[in-house]
Amino acid sequence: MEFTSPSDMTARIRGLGAAPLLMILCEDAVEIDSTITHHLSAGFGHIVLALPPGVAAPAGLPPQVHPLHLPERPDDMATTCVNALIDGRPEGAWTAWLYNAEYLFTPFAETRTVGEAMTFCTEERRDAILTFVVDLYAETLATAPNAVDRDAACMDEVGYFALARWDKENDEAFDRQLDFHGGLRWRFEEHIPWERRRIDRVAMFRARKGLRLLADHTVTDPEMCTYSAPWHHSMTACITSFRAAKALSTNPGSRAAVTTFKWDGSVPFEWRAQQLMDLGLMEPGQWF
């Protein structure tokens, strides 16, 4: 299936059924192939590839991958495309989204599929899985000027923290919501607008009528923005991402200040969910 616009996708996407579906927002052509391959292997039934003008789909797409050709590049690709996707999905269908050169890991991903994780969360009466963005970056910029190197990817093992998310209207902290920080957005914060420094996203959820993704990567249902259920710890997931490193190393405002991303807190990324759990970046909850 191929879509010519977000509205065309909304009208026809229901035909793909209720299997777990992922949308990949392609800001550029970097690592689109590997992003697709990783998530098909993770167990997504279908992938929608959002392609703005100037970004072409890779040749020979698998039948489970469906291009969405955007007539223009939206000011905010995430809200424009994901909300159009939500409007067309069956009620309760698990839906996820991320950018190209980003790779989702759920707990025990080496032996269990993303669909199994979603089914478990449904049984736990959870309609969303909070995700944390873990920045990846090349070991050296000498051989990878855009900071993208899957074969020698590094990540921060320290420097992550959370602050209370404040409800200004009621002058109190939101229940079970926190603003999470760390990675390159923390270490290079002088180059990152303050509203883009958080690393938490509501990137996996069950679609429902009226639900909206917001520009800060939360959604309009407050319970879907929580890191845990009221009764016990809940599963979380990680999105390992070259996106921040790619932007910092190529944007004119920051590239001159970046000579390397490596520091004392860097470790090689092993491309394993277990590493992320061992570092405390991902919570299996009650799933053993």
Rank of each mutant, 00 (worst) to 15 (best):
263 W>V: 08
285 G>C: 12
241 S>E: 09
155 M>D: 00
149 D>N: 14
128 A>D: 07
159 G>S: 03
90 P>R: 07
186 W>M: 03
192 I>S: 09
38 H>F: 03
234 S>L: 10
132 F>I: 02
234 S>E: 07
112 R>A: 02
46 H>Q: 14
165 R>G: 00
125 R>L: 08
85 L>G: 04
221 D>I: 12
34 S>G: 14
103 Y>H: 13
139 E>D: 05
92 G>Q: 07
3 F>Q: 03
30 V>W: 04
265 G>I: 03
227 Y>R: 10
238 C>H: 01
4 T>L: 05
144 A>H: 13
13 I>Y: 05
137 Y>C: 13
73 R>D: 04
248 L>G: 14
62 P>Q: 06
196 R>C: 15
224 M>V: 08
173 A>Y: 10
76 D>S: 13
113 T>W: 02
239 I>M: 11
97 W>E: 06
151 D>W: 15
15 G>M: 01
263 W>A: 14
145 P>A: 15
229 A>Q: 12
258 V>S: 14
48 V>I: 14
80 T>L: 11
66 H>E: 13
237 A>Y: 07
29 A>V: 10
61 L>E: 09
158 V>F: 04
228 S>C: 13
274 Q>S: 03
60 G>Y: 02
10 T>G: 01
194 W>G: 08
98 L>S: 00
279 L>F: 02
246 K>S: 13
104 L>A: 09
142 A>L: 10
204 M>G: 03
16 L>P: 02
50 A>L: 09
119 T>E: 14
283 E>N: 08
77 M>G: 05
54 G>F: 06
56 A>N: 12
189 E>D: 09
116 E>T: 04
55 V>N: 07
80 T>Y: 08
142 A>M: 07
214 L>M: 08
278 D>V: 01
178 L>C: 06
150 R>A: 15
266 S>T: 10
156 D>I: 00
218 T>R: 11
267 V>G: 03
139 E>T: 01
25 L>M: 12
288 F>T: 07
232 H>A: 11
275 Q>S: 03
160 Y>D: 01
175 D>K: 12
273 A>Y: 00
241 S>P: 09
29 A>N: 14
159 G>K: 06
1 M>G: 04
10 T>P: 00
170 N>H: 15
217 H>K: 10
244 A>Q: 15
247 A>T: 15
158 V>W: 07
179 D>I: 04
111 T>K: 07
26 C>P: 06
128 A>C: 12
28 D>R: 12
159 G>Y: 04
120 F>K: 15
57 A>F: 02
158 V>K: 11
41 S>W: 00
284 P>M: 07
284 P>T: 03
273 A>K: 00
250 T>Y: 11
42 A>G: 05
13 I>W: 02
133 V>I: 13
23 M>W: 06
99 Y>N: 11
194 W>R: 14
60 G>A: 06
185 R>C: 03
273 A>C: 00
104 L>C: 08
185 R>Q: 06
110 E>N: 05
